[in-house]
Design a protein around this nucleic acid. Structure first.
Lengths: 210, 210
DNA sequence: ACGGTTTCCGGCAGCTTTGACTTTTTTGAG
DNA sequence: CTCAAAAAAGTCAAAGCTGCCGGAAACCGT
């Protein structure tokens, strides 16, 4: 490849091409796994399907991740990291505007739970109920997300610091309504009713503030 | 067979012991399938596992249900029929007392979503997202349940007939909060927070009534 | 340019599940 | 009692998934 003739240009690269390529491949595999969860469900997320979506042979994949559970573990961590980052970003983007922060936070989480990543998380959460190994991986990641989520919420709404109980209540209420709505476990997409419920939730939260 | 020689006398009886036994066996298989859903998840609900829980050989089971999907179909119908019946019964039992009907209805549905049957339903609902055949079976059953559920709610709260919009809102809010809480997709069993949210929901519903 | 390492590929054995088959036991009518 | 049908059980091949191995190709330091 003739890489050695340009010794200075690698200052940015993380320890040479090989390691970089390896990291890129691992990333391809992990994102492919998440896509599998969304498209095929946890049961349909086989090593074959993941490798195919990653554009790799199965053998190559098992070189980077010796076992299927290793891929799942990496996917869970990647998923939660991205989930948290995406939520934070969308929240920080709207918060400093100084407008209706309740509405903005609500919209941010509403957008979040409608993202494919949340679908992937749902698949994992349901599968983990009857899969101890997966549960052992998912529970810590979930606890982290929960903690960080609350911390972020407290940062955005510092004025609720004195009303701990009402704040918790507002958080729980919002999460269950939004996530239940997004999960679509109940209703099958009736925009009118969705809107009505979301608007009501917003009003209720405003009342809880006052 | 030979049943055609007595066309009139078998109106009540299930056509002799054989047919009765057959029906009992089918029932054993169906309930075993539901138990499998709860214990092993949809992916783990194999014909082998069902047959084992039903105390039958796999061959015998495939005599009653030629294919796995037939068992699933029967299980879905059985599950929704029982789900609806159980909810109606618990609701009717408390309604005529004349006490706090909101509280009673809330308790009834809260008990309902904590029943193993709801877990089985969750497994089916999630699996149906990526399984067209299952979705084709589950969607009609779900629509039926939804319709009947609302009809029953209207019967119990006739005074809300004039406030259609607020009534729908109250129903949607209750369902998402209770089902979200029961699904445990979010929080992992914190009784204190659960109680707080439930009590708040009750107060909110009372406000919606007035 | 060369040897060792890393990455990638194809194939293999073992296991599970499914659906179809054949055989045995039970049941009910003549 | 005999016999045909239903119920139950056991057997089988095909398909899919997992994990592992040997070998090919690309890469890096020397």
């Amino acid at each position: 490849m003739g890489r050695e003739s340009h010794p200075l240009e690698r200052t940015q690269e993380p320890a040479g091409w090989q390691a970089q390529k390896s990291a890129a491949t691992r990333h391809r595999i992990v994102t492919a796994a998440v896509r599998c969860l969304v498209d095929l469900g946890y049961a349909g997320t086989t090593t074959t399907a993941i490798a195919a979506r990653a554009g790799l042979s199965r053998g190559a994949m098992l070189h980077h991740f010796p076992s299927k559970i290793d891929v799942v573990r990496a996917a869970v961590e990647h998923l939660h990291a991205r989930r948290l980052k995406a939520f934070r970003k969308s929240l920080e983007r709207t918060a400093p505007a100084g407008g209706d922060r309740v509405r903005q936070a609500l919209d941010a989480y509403w957008a979040h739970v409608r993202h494919p990543m949340f679908v992937a998380f749902l698949e994992l959460a349901v599968a983990a109920r009857t899969d101890r190994e997966l549960a052992a991986i998912l529970l810590p990641a979930r606890a982290d997300f929960e903690r960080e989520w609350r911390r972020t919420a407290r940062e955005v709404f510092p004025e609720w610091l004195g009303h701990e109980e009402r704040f918790e209540l507002a958080l729980d209420l919002s999460r269950h309504v939004l996530e239940g709505l997004a999960a679509g476990v109940v209703t099958q997409r009736e925009p009118a009713r969705e809107r009505r419920l979301l608007e009501y939730l917003e009003r209720t939260l405003h009342e809880l503030v006052g």
